[in-house]
């Protein structure tokens, strides 16, 4: 069963800040969903191969070539905080 500490750990892994109310709600709801999922244990799958995709196509390759994007300015314009040719982010390291 999932507890509030698990929820806090998962929220950190998922890079989500949760409010205390969300934490409590998710603990209950995630618990219920995971409990529902438990029914998969009714099936014996020891000798079953996993399916990773519905219709298997493998080893699709293409030439490793660069293609300049035609709308470079538009891409930069869509950024929250562009500066010249760069995307600005807050301080990463303490000075």
């Amino acid at each position: 069963m999932i507890g509030q500490q698990d929820v806090q750990k998962v929220a950190h892994l998922a890079r989500l800040t949760l409010t205390p109310a969300e934490e409590a709600q998710f603990t209950t709801q995630l618990g219920a969903i995971l409990e529902y999922v438990e029914q998969l244990n009714e099936l014996d799958v020891t000798t079953v191969e996993p399916t990773t995709r519905a219709i298997d196509v493998s080893n699709i390759t293409r030439p490793d070539q660069q293609h300049p994007h035609p709308n470079r300015a538009q891409i930069l314009a869509g950024a929250p905080d562009p500066e010249g040719d760069f995307f600005r982010v807050p301080k990463i390291m303490d000075s």
Binding site: V10, R15, L16, I33, K91
Partner: peptide, 27 residues
């Protein structure tokens, strides 16, 4: 800082069901 940018942006940008599924999947 950078970490706060990630966690707060995602906290405010996503709705409850999306957060729920991200949480289940991450778990």
């Amino acid at each position: 800082n950078l970490m706060e940018m990630y966690t707060q942006t995602r906290a405010k940008g996503f709705g409850a069901e999306v957060k729920r599924r991200i949480m289940i999947g991450t778990y």
